[in-house]
Design a protein around this nucleic acid. Structure first.
Lengths: 214, 214
DNA sequence: TAGATTGTTAATCGATTAACAATC
DNA sequence: TAGATTGTTAATCGATTAACAATC
């Protein structure tokens, strides 16, 4: 059970699989499973056991020969790899339906995302209470970022405002932006994760057309 | 400008890039660009021109030597590959904030998704009008699916109800399910696309931790 | 025609899988 | 101890890139 020290550089394709490992380990913990082999876990996830062991080996050694993995330990390890051991203070900009959906989504708080400020430009919304927070005017966003130490910005505005909001967030010192607006945003020195919600629909259409019921 | 006939089998990794091609072509069309080379388009997208040409070659021949691609023609071709030339009749189950956000999301109608029925189990919601549709009780879902020809089901319920809803949808003959509930669903003979909204957040955390501002 | 750029083939690179020594 | 299963090395497979003949 050793996590490699220092910054880890795993191939991007492995990084993309990490959330899947996380999800399945949460499921196992909930079921009360204490021990699992790479064979069983990989079967659950629809990958090979070789790939599972290879993937994990980028980050350290978490199992025990002849025994497998202790679910709790592997879960802890994946959490640490993903950076889930800490709380991330976040602001959300754009308190429409999508923004509200995210604020009410349990998994976010569970995973360490802690919304501390929510902003909109609609005067009719400002002052309203959503998910325990009062909606503030976007005009106050820069000063809010200045006085609070915010690491994550969530953009749930229309596409037209997204880039401008991203620049304010970057200027305010956020480290990461989670962008739900259907457009690319471009800011230096900030990690950006684009949700691209619509992409899933296009893939669904493609598979419906070409796999036609298989 | 020829699209290969019949069912296409491109590697999954190519299929996953198709929505990106689509998005960038929409952008070019909006800008009024009429012609583009693989070199320019690939640079826009952050891939190599070789990869772009290789990807497209799975589906047909869409360019012209010495000239490049006519944006409109390539756009049309990608639409046909993705199956966007037709309308998909859809039901949405779970009229919470996320469901409302999707119903109001322009891109869906633009891409040929046409919601014709929305369902919830909350009696307080039934009868309410959302996005031009009246919320019906989930109890009516089976009979609605029986009398209307529905191809796509969208699940925006809590995790606990998702599997049950998926089975009703499958039983009602839908061809594809777009699942936003944070859990896997399992139904035979139906294409399922899981949104896994939370995965993006975990990847953001990972990159913030390991790329630390780069 | 000369220049540009495609579609495709061949070369390279990287990711997945198989196999196994180490060992619990 | 015998059986099971890891972490890792080597082999295979597939995806990306480079190169170029075809041709607009």
């Amino acid at each position: 059970m050793t996590l490699k020290p220092g910054p880890i550089m795993a191939p991007l394709v492995v990084v993309r699989r990490l959330p899947m490992y996380y999800r399945h380990l949460v499921l196992l913990k909930e079921k009360g499973v204490e021990r699992i082999s790479s064979r069983e876990l990989s079967r659950m996830m629809g990958i090979t056991s070789s790939q599972l062991r290879q993937d994990l080996s980028y980050f350290g050694e978490f199992g025990q020969q002849g025994y497998g993995y202790r679910v709790g330990d592997l879960y802890q390890a994946i959490c640490e790899i993903l950076g889930l051991e800490k709380e991330y203070r976040a602001v959300l900009v754009g308190v429409g339906n999508l923004g509200r959906a995210l604020l009410n989504y349990d998994n976010f708080r569970k995973r360490g995302l802690s919304p501390v400020g929510i902003f909109d430009c609609d005067p009719g919304l400002i002052g309203e209470k959503v998910g325990g927070l009062v909606v503030k005017s976007v005009d106050e966003l820069p000063s809010f970022l200045g006085t609070n130490d915010i690491e994550v910005g969530i953009i749930t505005t229309p596409a037209a405002s997204a880039q401008e909001v991203a620049q304010v967030l970057a200027g305010g010192g956020v480290k990461g932006i989670w962008n739900f607006a259907p457009c690319a945003i471009c800011v230096p020195d900030v990690v950006v994760e684009n949700a691209h919600l619509g992409d899933g629909l296009l893939r669904l259409f493609f598979l419906m057309k070409h796999e036609g019921g298989n």
